[in-house]
């Protein structure tokens, strides 16, 4: 469904991505993890053409989303920063996206109710808390029933109820055959919903595997400890 090969990007002198390659299968939740600045958001932004890679190939269902804007119809994207027009309401934002995409949104009512957004729908976005904006952003990403979902730190700022409901929803979406890629710093979330993880370090893909298998092979009680152990071992190797 999603194929990435030799993806490279520099911001000035800093290498953000260095020949990253992976593919994502339908009916799979893949978690993109790594330290701050490792290139997770750059990968997501490259996939939806917000960032122009210096080199590499991106194919979504065989189409290049940068050359063919129509291919972005296959994507639902939730950004990391919810910098929406402050004077507009969530309803206006949803209608605006609906106009742009000219696609039906059969599940928007269900999503609004899932995240408890009904009382906030007419308020201006500038008055909403960060967590509520996260729920709005998540609704915007899920409302078109796109086959590929790209979610950047989706549970960040959300309350436990919304976070739990979102994870349940993501599992449902996977069962419906969707391809889901999410960035997260929450290893608990990754362990809970992720079928597969991609570990990035300084723009390089250093590990790929099933979260549970990684915990087992590292002989640690949690995924967070396993990942920390792997990254620290790599740093020690580099120093020596």
């Amino acid at each position: 469904m999603v194929e990435v090969a030799d993806l490279s990007k520099r911001f000035g002198r800093r290498i953000a991505l260095d020949a990253v390659a992976f593919h994502l299968k339908p009916r799979t939740i893949t978690a993109l993890i790594g330290p701050n600045g490792s290139g997770k958001t750059t990968i997501l932004k490259s996939l939806c053409s917000l960032v122009r890679p210096d080199r590499g190939v991106i194919r979504i269902n065989g189409k290049d989303p940068r050359r063919d804007p129509g291919a972005r119809r296959l994507l639902g994207y939730m950004p990391q920063v919810y910098d929406f027009p402050e004077h507009r309401s969530p309803r206006q934002l949803m209608e605006w996206l609906k106009e742009i995409r000219a696609e039906p949104t059969p599940e928007v009512g269900e999503l609004v109710s899932l995240f408890g957004l009904a009382p906030e729908m007419e308020r201006s976005l500038g008055t909403l808390s960060w967590g509520t904006r996260a729920k709005v952003a998540c609704t915007l990403a899920l409302m078109f029933s796109s086959p590929v979902l790209l979610l950047d730190e989706p549970t960040s700022g959300m309350d436990p109820i919304a976070s739990t409901r979102l994870k349940d929803r993501l599992r449902q979406e996977r069962e419906r055959g969707k391809t889901i890629l999410l960035c997260s710093h929450s290893m608990a979330d990754v362990a809970e919903v992720g079928d597969r993880l991609l570990l990035l370090e300084r723009g390089n893909l250093v590990l790929e595997g099933n979260p549970q298998d990684i915990v087992t092979s590292e002989k640690t009680p949690t995924l967070e400890r396993a990942i920390a152990q792997i990254l620290e071992a790599r740093r020690r190797e580099k120093v020596s």
Partner: peptide, 13 residues
């Protein structure tokens, strides 16, 4: 509008 472009430009347009 800069931040908002992140949402708009990810759309099929």
């Amino acid at each position: 509008e800069r931040g908002f472009f992140e949402l708009v430009l990810a759309q099929p347009i």
